[in-house]
């Protein structure tokens, strides 16, 4: 199963992510975002913990992805791998640990300004999940 796929968008970046489970779906969204930042190998020199909550599936996704933009800007952190990941579907909570490196060691592709709700969806199709996100860049 494909993890994510980029789609055409005139001004910004749009992608779909896929997952057998909701948990995989959120993880694959993060991986798509990492690829937007930088599409080559990044060393795992630093780790950060992420704890986010949402009011619904979409806001949880928005808040989860936004956390990486925050770390990018405030800690100069380029994420590359998800070390651990736990989704609490009932409480709409994600606890994760990601590894990566300082941005200055790489010629990064893109600075993402924001995650948006534009055209965002998360839905179940037959037995798997699919989502769509547009990033403002």
């Amino acid at each position: 199963m494909k993890k994510f796929q980029f789609l055409e968008h005139t001004a910004d970046i749009k992608f779909r992510a896929f997952g057998k489970t909701l948990s995989d779906l959120y993880k694959n969204n993060a991986l798509a975002l990492f690829e937007v930042f930088y599409d080559k190998n990044v060393k795992g020199k630093e780790n950060y913990n992420i704890n986010v909550k949402g009011k619904d599936y979409e806001s949880l996704l928005y808040n989860f992805l936004e956390e990486f933009l925050f770390l990018f800007d405030s800690k100069n952190f380029l994420p590359s791998k998800i070390i651990s990941f736990k989704l609490d579907e009932k409480k709409l909570k994600i606890t994760a640990e990601v590894s990566g490196d300082q941005i200055k060691n790489y010629n990064v592709n893109t600075h993402v300004k924001a995650v948006t709700y534009n055209e965002m969806f998360i839905k179940k199709q037959r037995s798997s999940w699919i989502s769509q996100v547009v990033l403002d860049i």
Binding site: F6, E8, H9, T10, A11, D12, I13, I137
Partner: peptide, 8 residues
């Protein structure tokens, strides 16, 4: 104003 997507 953009007319072409970044990917294209």
């Amino acid at each position: 104003g953009r007319v072409m997507s970044r990917s294209s």
